[in-house]
Nucleic acid binder design. Structure first.
Length: 155
DNA sequence: GCCAACGTTGGC
DNA sequence: GCCAACGTTGGC
């Protein structure tokens, strides 16, 4: 089954995992997502989908790079590991709660497309872009092809 | 099933 | 470090 390429935005705190860290390892399992909506978006991902890599909780939050979905969703192993911060005692191997996808480095942007700048372009992005919705804490969200194109044109 | 309490996210 | 917004938990 193939389908048209979809686009996403994924947030990471650079202290925990940055675009530079992804560049270094090449491919990384995107573990630790513990939000059902974000998980469901990952379940909808297919290899080859585009990912905007976003740095949150940092001096200048914003889009810093481009990555690519490199696997279908599969159970996040950290949910089974009692020593992990992401351990979930309610999750079992028979019935895992949390999935992840592998994410592959594509490129680092020449500059950060800051959240400030993105907010300033809200009109061009259209309503309901989850990133700039008040109070939105979603860490994985869909991006339309038009939004993808527009955001990368700002680089 | 309601909702208060609590924990987390993430901008500032 | 603060705190608003939001999701989850658990008592009832």
């Amino acid at each position: 089954m193939s389908r048209r390429k979809h686009y996403w935005l994924m947030k990471s705190e650079p202290d925990a995992f940055s675009i530079d860290a992804l560049k270094k390892v090449g491919v990384e399992p995107w573990n630790g997502v513990r939000n059902y909506q974000a998980r469901n978006f990952m379940r909808a991902m297919q290899p080859g989908d585009g990912v905007l890599f976003y740095h949150s909780n940092t001096d200048v939050p914003g889009i810093v790079g481009v990555a690519e979905v490199a696997s279908e969703a599969y159970p996040d192993p950290t949910q089974f590991d009692p020593k992990s911060d992401y351990f979930d005692p309610k999750s079992t191997r028979e019935q895992p709660r949390w999935d992840l996808v592998d994410v592959k480095f594509v490129k680092k942007l020449k500059r950060t497309i800051s959240l400030d700048e993105i907010k300033g372009r809200a009109d061009e992005l259209g309503d309901g872009f989850a990133l700039v919705q008040r109070g939105s804490r979603l860490s994985v969200m869909p991006v339309t092809a038009a939004q993808w194109k527009f955001l990368l044109s700002l680089e």
